[in-house]
């Protein structure tokens, strides 16, 4: 099946940066009520405003290969990156996942995230791929970092 790219399988079997770590400013717990997938995600940000950097994203996730791979890629693509860049990555991921297959994703921006492009053709799975990212933006809100984040409503963006 074209959906299950090798990269997705790799990430889901060996999720990068998995586990919950200290320190963190916000911890959130998100579930996908239709299938019971869950993620607990902690966010640690250093610096303020334009100089803010995602120092750590740690998580404990239980879910299908798509949601596991997505949160693993999230950690890989955001840890150590400026917050503004992480948000650009999020926007690009979301745009790709909700494009119904129109947007193949830009590897320059979302890295391994392009492996999830096939998910956009399966509306029932888009939520799986967005679960971790919704937790990430929610944690960002809770951490009090004042950055313009669009699409933190988990309902939004799923067709």
């Amino acid at each position: 099946m074209d959906l299950y790219q090798e990269l997705i399988l790799e990430h889901s079997k060996r999720p990068q940066h998995a586990g919950l770590r200290e320190p963190f400013e916000a911890e959130v717990h998100h579930v996908n009520p239709t299938c019971g997938d869950e993620v607990t995600l902690r966010l640690h940000i250093v610096g303020e405003g334009p100089t803010a950097v995602v120092e750590d994203v740690s998580y404990d996730a239980l879910g299908c290969s798509i949601s596991m791979a997505s949160v693993s890629i999230l950690a890989e693509e955001t840890i150590g990156h400026p917050l503004s860049e992480a948000l650009t990555t999020f926007e690009a991921m979301k745009a790709m996942l909700t494009s119904k297959g129109e947007d193949p994703g830009d590897e320059e921006v979302i890295g391994d995230g392009v492996a999830l492009a096939g998910v956009a053709r399966y509306p029932a799975r888009v939520k799986c791929a967005l679960l971790g990212w919704m937790a990430f933006t929610d944690a960002l809100h809770q951490s009090g970092h004042r950055v313009a984040v669009t699409g933190t409503d988990p309902e939004e963006g799923t067709p």
């Binding site: 798509i66 399966y122 799975r125």
Partner: peptide, 13 residues
């Protein structure tokens, strides 16, 4: 070791 969502997706294919 395979989540039901993934099993269902393969069957659906």
């Amino acid at each position: 070791d395979v989540h039901a969502h993934d099993v269902g997706q393969v069957l659906d294919g």
